[in-house]
């Protein structure tokens, strides 16, 4: 009889050391993989949730893969959804805050956009026409071939942007606008005490060079021209004072007349002497001093 102990030990060792490897990975490949587009514009968030079908060499997507007349969701699997965190306009049409499913009825000529209030539809659950929907007719555009269906914001502005769907050579742009989170307007009489020439000196970091501010009332706003601009950067040459409360302002910057940036976390606080603003302090979120300014005679 042969001694089987070493063989039994070897077999047991193999069983012990290979058993943890026996658990299979969950299958995860999808023909149309899920994706999310999330874009914030001035505090309003747009979220598109969709699955991304691929052309896979099919050269006739619309009229064949997507038959003419179909109410098609621009995606796959669950219907593509659009969620907006504030009331917005889309192609000039009001859309209330909320979550919606997106559909397009495809035709050889003009298509129909359908935004339905039910965000939980499968791609085969084509919504019937309903008064609660937002619908309009449009002419689809064309562009370079895109293999994987894509949603993206091609352009952004301070008040909105261009949301685009592309698949194959079809390109569908949607202009969206958001409500502004700020007001630039400041009454001329209210601005009068602050107008004049000021000098602002940074109080933090290595930058100690002073900046001259010419504060004026212009185009309904209280505006300062900075010389030199903050940080030596031209985008910080024109400051607008956004009113917050008496003698308190939030600084914003204009480039070519459009809001470039709002320093929401910064406070510009004017201090008065003899009833007249004579000094200013720029403060951070912890109330720490970023800069001090004084009015020039």
């Amino acid at each position: 009889m042969t001694d089987s102990t070493p063989l039994r030990r070897a077999v047991l060792a193999i069983c012990v050391f290979t058993t943890p490897l026996a658990t299979p990975l969950a299958a995860q490949v999808k023909a149309s993989e899920p994706a999310v587009l999330s874009q914030t514009v001035d505090g309003t968030r747009f979220t598109i949730e969709y699955s991304r079908p691929r052309a896979r060499g099919r050269d006739t997507l619309f009229g064949k893969v997507v038959p003419w007349g179909e109410v098609w969701t621009p995606g796959a699997n669950m219907a593509t959804t659009l969620e907006v965190s504030n009331d917005v306009t889309i192609e000039g049409r009001p859309l209330r805050k909320g979550k919606y499913s997106l559909w397009m009825q495809v035709q050889p000529g003009d298509w129909t956009m359908v935004i339905d209030t039910n965000p939980k539809l499968y791609h085969t659950q084509h919504p019937k026409e309903d008064p609660s929907q937002l619908r309009w007719t449009f002419t689809p555009g064309t562009g370079p071939f895109t293999d994987v269906l894509t949603w993206e914001f091609e352009r952004l502005r301070v008040d909105g942007g261009t949301l685009v769907m592309r698949w194959g050579t079809v390109r569908v742009p949607l202009e969206v606008k958001v409500p502004p989170s700020y007001t630039l307007a400041f009454d001329a009489a209210a601005a009068a005490p602050y107008l004049g020439t000021w000098v602002l000196t940074p109080q933090m970091g290595d930058d100690t060079a002073s900046t001259r501010l010419e504060v004026a009332h212009r185009d309904g706003m209280m505006v300062a021209t900075l010389d030199p601009p903050l940080f030596g950067a031209p985008e910080y040459r024109t400051m607008v004072f956004l009113p917050k409360r008496a003698d308190w302002f939030t600084p914003a910057y204009l480039v070519d007349g459009e809001v470039y940036e709002i320093w929401d976390e910064v406070l510009v606080e004017f201090e008065r002497s003899g009833g007249r603003p004579t000094t200013m302090t720029m403060r951070g979120l912890k109330d720490e001093v970023y800069g001090r300014g004084r009015r020039l005679p």
Partner: peptide
């Protein structure tokens, strides 16, 4: 210092 330092601190 400068812009990078300021914006970094905020």
């Amino acid at each position: 210092g400068g812009r990078r330092g300021f914006l970094a601190s905020v």
